[in-house]
Nucleic acid binder design. Structure first.
Length: 423
DNA sequence: CTAGGGTTAG
């Protein structure tokens, strides 16, 4: 509402009311957001020339530009502040943030490194910002160098900066570095919290390292921390990956005792484990309770469908497929493929083709599996093996024209209605 | 209006 704001400013001028630095910062932000960069700049300049700007006001203006990626303007405010010799740690910190916004990691480091020669001591925020920026750019080794300096400067008061770097190493799969850093953190007397344990447990869970993950769970408990849903989800993921049913079930029971109960994700992991072992009753029990709670999602249904299909209970598989479609839980390539394959093997060719049409409507690109199932349909309808192989080759060569070739054959053989809009 | 961490599969 620029016009309204300007009206107020005029009124203030007329009444001789002073526009203070807070109003000025607000105006800078307003004009930047309105795309009126020149106006924003003239308000800044007016106050800069008046000479009574505070450090807070310079940094507010730098941040106003920097946050939105106007790095040149942010730099110009910073330089005018330097010319007034008023730069404090605040201006440097917002500049570090600004370089982070435009992903100029080298300049973020450079301005941090220049603080000392400008007689400004980096504070907790300077280090945290830079570490955050570097890890966000997947440069944990760089971040670690600054974390070490931060530690030596006595500025680490909680485990968050460690947690950020540990998380970054973990994401890149450098688990030995993550573990080493955890140990260094403890050695420095920094207390780990539930989140950093969550990062580590999840990292080793993804790697399928049971022993290491359990070591962290034990360390966590020794520190007087109890597991939460995030921790148990990671553990269930791990046990699902390595196929430890009993342990997964134990973690699942722990989740059931929490206030919000097991997340859909963990319940699906359990269904995954049960269906792998064809433990139908157990899988069904979770499936029914999820449906009752209205939490069952595409994964849930797809895994149940696969389980029934695998053990030859085709009627039940088809029942699940129909529920999936009715509830609009059909969006993923794998779901489409499972369903088409189910209908194809049961001789329900029209239904198989109709799911294929749904797939095109949803703009999901078919893959080899899709065409394998559709090939079965064609073969059972009397199309020759050579013709089917030829279609498969066409699809591999060029997805778009291949798709059209399949549609044209399927429509003439199975009688699907070709809808041009589906392309 | 100087900064900040974790879980999502078939």
């Amino acid at each position: 509402m620029v016009a309204e704001a300007e009206k107020l400013i005029t009124e203030m001028d007329e009444r001789g009311l002073e526009i203070d630095e807070f109003t000025q910062s607000a105006l800078t932000r307003m004009y930047i957001d309105a795309g009126m960069l020149e106006e924003s700049w003239s308000w800044f300049w007016r106050f800069h020339l008046a000479g009574h700007m505070s450090s807070e006001c310079y940094s507010a203006n730098i941040d106003a530009y920097g946050e939105r990626g106007f790095i040149l303007e942010a730099e110009r405010v910073f330089v005018s502040c330097q010319e007034e010799k008023k730069c404090t740690v605040l201006e440097f910190n917002v500049m570090i943030k600004a370089y982070g916004v435009v992903k100029d990691y080298a300049k973020a480091q450079k301005i941090f490194d220049s603080m000392k020669s400008n007689g400004v001591v980096p504070d907790k925020c300077s280090y945290s910002s830079l570490i955050q920026i570097l890890t966000g750019a997947d440069m944990p080794a760089m971040a670690l160098a600054y974390l070490k300096k931060m530690q030596s400067a006595g500025l680490v008061s909680d485990c968050i900066p460690y947690s950020v770097v540990i998380s970054s190493f973990s994401k890149l799969g450098h688990l030995e570095m993550a573990d080493k850093l955890y140990r260094e953190m403890v050695k420095h007397g920094v207390q780990p919290d539930i989140i950093v344990y969550g990062v580590l447990i999840n990292a080793f869970a993804d790697a399928g390292s049971v022993k290491e993950a359990i070591n962290y769970v034990n360390a966590m408990k020794r520190d007087g921390l109890s597991g939460n849903t995030v921790i148990y989800n990671s553990l269930i993921k791990l046990y699902t990956k390595v196929g430890y049913l009993k342990e997964a079930h134990e973690a699942y029971k722990m989740l059931e005792q929490t206030d919000d109960g097991p997340a859909i994700y963990s319940s699906n992991c359990m269904i995954d484990l049960y269906s792998e072992r064809s433990m139908v009753k157990e899988a069904e029990e979770i499936f029914e309770s999820l449906k009752k709670k209205g939490e069952a999602n595409e994964f849930t249904f797809a895994m149940m469908l696969c389980m029934y299909k695998k053990i030859g209970r085709i009627q039940e598989a088809i029942c699940v497929a129909r529920q999936m479609k009715e509830q609009g839980l059909l969006s993923d390539l794998l779901s489409f493929n499972n369903m088409i394959s189910l209908y194809a093997m049961d001789g329900r060719f029209k239904e198989a083709v109709s799911i294929f049409q749904e797939m095109m409507k949803a703009a999901v690109q078919p893959d080899e599996c899709t065409y394998k199932s559709l090939g079965v349909v064609l073969l059972k309808c009397g199309v020759s093996k050579q013709a089917v192989s030829k279609l498969e080759v066409t699809a591999k060569k060029d997805a778009q024209s291949g798709l059209q070739a399949w549609v044209s054959v399927l429509s003439s053989v199975v009688g699907m209605n070709v809808n041009e809009e589906d392309f």
